[in-house]
Design a protein around this nucleic acid. Structure first.
Lengths: 137, 137
DNA sequence: ATAAATCCTATAGAATAGGTATGAATTAAA
DNA sequence: TTTAATTCATACCTATTCTATAGGATTTAT
C-alpha cells in the first residue's frame, strides 16, 4: 500500500501543478490547503527537493515550486522518491533490484514471472506525466 | 512490497500443488524444502487454514494439503489472506475498502482514478488460478 | 529589525515485520 | 499403552518503519 508520505507528496505535487499563481507556495499554505501535518510536510518537501522534484526559495515570501515542467513529472517518480520500488518483489525492480537470497534460478521462478507481468502493467500507467491526469474540481 | 509472510505462503501453496505425493506435508518438511523458518511457517499455515486455503491433518503422519482444487486457488487469494488489500490505496479496494478521511469527493479524485486503473490491471493477473503458472524446474 | 520562510537534527510513540518460546492436544505406529 | 511426530494456541520479543513533532539555525523580503 501507498504510504501517507507518498500520498501527501503526490497531493503536494498536484497542488503545485494546479496553482501556478501561488508559486512559490509555502509549506504552511500547502499544509493548510491539503490538510497535511505541517512538520511532516516540511520533511516530505525536503525529500522531494533532494529528488529534484521540487525546488525551493528561501526566506520570507519563499516557498516551493515544481523543479521541472509538469509534463516531465510522473506519479511513479514521486512514489519511487518516497517509498522506493514500485515492483511488488525486489527481484524484478529496475531501480531497486535485489535478488532473493534463497532463489536458485530467477529465470524459471514462477513467482517472479507473475510479478514481472504485474509490474509491466503497472509501471506505464504510473509513469504517465501528471499533466495527463484529468483535472477536476 | 510483498511481505515475506506472503511470499512464504505462496511458496507453500505452490509446493503443495507441485507435490501431491507428499500430501499431507508436514510443516517441518515444507520448512526444510522451501527454507522457511519453521515456527514462522507454522504461524503462516495456521493463517492459511483460517482462510481455507489449506486443510490440516493432526497427529503423527499429519500435515497440510490444499483445501480446494488448485484451479480454484489464486495468488491474489494468498496475498489477501496474508497482507490484506492488493489495491495501493484503500479507497478503491473491493474487499478492504476504506475512505480517505480528508477526501471530499471520491468521484473526482485524480489519485483515486489513477490507482483504480492500476488496480484493474493488476487484479486479473493475480487472480489467475495457480494451475496456469507455467511449471518450471 | 522583524517576520516569514526554508533548512536541519533529533526525538517519540505506534504499528508492522519477522520471528521465537512454550506447551497443550491429537494421533499413528511401535 | 507408551512414544514420537505432528498440529494448534498463545504469548512474547526485537528491530525497523511509519507518522509524525520539537526546537532551533539560517535566509531574505519588507
Amino acid at each position: 500500500m501507498l504510504s501517507k508520505r507518498a500520498k501527501y507528496a503526490i497531493k503536494t505535487i498536484l497542488f503545485l501543478q494546479d496553482h501556478p499563481e501561488l508559486v512559490p507556495a509555502s509549506a504552511k499554505l500547502i499544509s493548510e490547503r491539503e490538510t497535511i501535518p505541517y512538520k511532516f510536510l516540511e520533511n516530505i518537501l525536503r525529500d522531494l527537493k533532494t529528488h529534484q522534484l521540487v525546488k525551493s526559495v528561501r526566506g520570507a515570501e519563499g516557498g516551493y515550486a515544481l523543479a521541472k515542467d509538469p509534463s516531465m513529472i510522473s506519479i511513479a517518480q514521486v512514489m519511487r522518491a518516497m517509498d522506493g520500488p514500485i515492483a511488488l518483489i525486489p527481484c524484478i525492480s529496475e531501480r531497486f533490484y535485489e535478488s532473493c537470497p534463497e532463489c536458485t534460478d530467477e529465470e524459471t521462478c514462477r513467482i517472479r514471472k507473475l510479478f514481472a507481468e504485474v509490474r509491466s502493467e503497472m509501471v506505464p500507467i504510473l509513469e504517465r506525466p501528471i499533466t495527463t491526469l484529468a483535472k477536476s474540481k
